[in-house]
């Protein structure tokens, strides 16, 4: 029964994507400009890393290609999240009542929100990040075996962050009726996750693991492949992911009780 419902939700998600893509590609020039935007944003972190390693010996314990790997992982995660969720668009839908007609569909609330169209052009930065990721893995001489664990952790971390952001978008709507803060937070998280967590000190590392879990999506999966992660750390990361995902999902549903759309 549950697996059937999950399959239906996934089918709904992909069906929605099909229509969004058709709509997006009607204005081809716009689509190209948005793709260019995603590409430029994607290059930002690489420019920063390249300049840092050009003028200095970089970050202790991290070679240039290891940093490229980490930056690509972060870009892949946030490219995917931006593809699914757009804080501004969801906020607009809620403010203007556009979400009401969607909520009467026979799917779960989270499925409807996650299928509400994100930034489609972010697929460009996610794809670009994947290419650089493969290139840096090749330059580091990484074999395919450790990638299974990496991809699994990456997927779990991305789902965790997505659910947390979903809850925050609704929380921001309920409390301040705006989305600028969540958009800025997303941009901040994307930038912060491009660097190794020890850079932020022990307090920062704890915050980025337990409170704003960017580490579980980019840093720990990368560390798993590039160095090694102890069994205890791995267990903590997985536990934190499950805990934050659960709290976010429950929080989202609870906050939805306070949802009133535009005019409502």
């Amino acid at each position: 029964m549950t697996s059937n419902r999950l399959a239906q939700s996934i089918r709904f998600f992909f069906l929605a994507q099909r229509y969004y893509w058709k709509d997006f590609l009607v204005y081809r020039a716009q689509a190209v400009v948005w793709a260019l935007y995603s590409l430029i944003n994607f290059l930002f972190s690489y420019v920063a890393i390249t300049v840092i390693y050009n003028v200095s010996s970089g970050i202790s314990g991290w070679s240039y290609f290891q940093m490229l790997f980490l930056v690509s992982t972060a870009s892949l995660v946030f490219g995917t999240i931006n593809y699914v969720l757009s804080p501004d668009w969801i906020n607009q839908l809620m403010r203007r009542g556009g979400m009401d007609t969607r909520l009467i569909r026979p799917y779960g609330r989270a499925t409807i929100y996650l299928s509400a169209e994100g930034s489609l052009s972010s697929i460009v930065s996610a794809f670009g990040a994947f290419v650089v990721l493969i290139y840096s893995a090749f330059r580091l001489g990484l074999g395919p075996a450790p990638f299974i664990g990496y991809l699994l952790l990456l997927a779990i971390g991305t789902v965790t962050l997505t659910l947390m952001l979903l809850m925050l978008i609704v929380a921001a709507y309920v409390v301040v009726r705006g989305s600028s803060a969540v958009s800025r937070m997303l941009s901040f998280m994307s930038q912060a996750s491009s660097y190794p967590l020890p850079v932020y000190g022990i307090v920062g590392q704890l915050i980025f693991t337990l409170v704003i879990p960017i580490g579980v999506a980019s840093y720990y999966p990368s560390e798993l492949v590039l160095t090694s992660v102890g069994a205890l750390t791995l267990a903590v990361v997985l536990l934190v992911s499950v805990a934050i995902s659960t709290v976010s999902y429950l929080g989202f549903n609870r906050l939805m009780r306070h949802y009133t759309s535009g005019g409502g």
Binding site: V176, G178, S180, A181, R184, M185, S187, F188, Q191
Partner: peptide, 18 residues
């Protein structure tokens, strides 16, 4: 949206801190 503006400023400062 004053509160939203205030929080977006906080994240702007945090981005500089990164």
């Amino acid at each position: 949206y004053r509160l939203d503006y205030f929080f977006s400023l906080v994240f702007r400062i945090l981005t500089a801190l990164v």
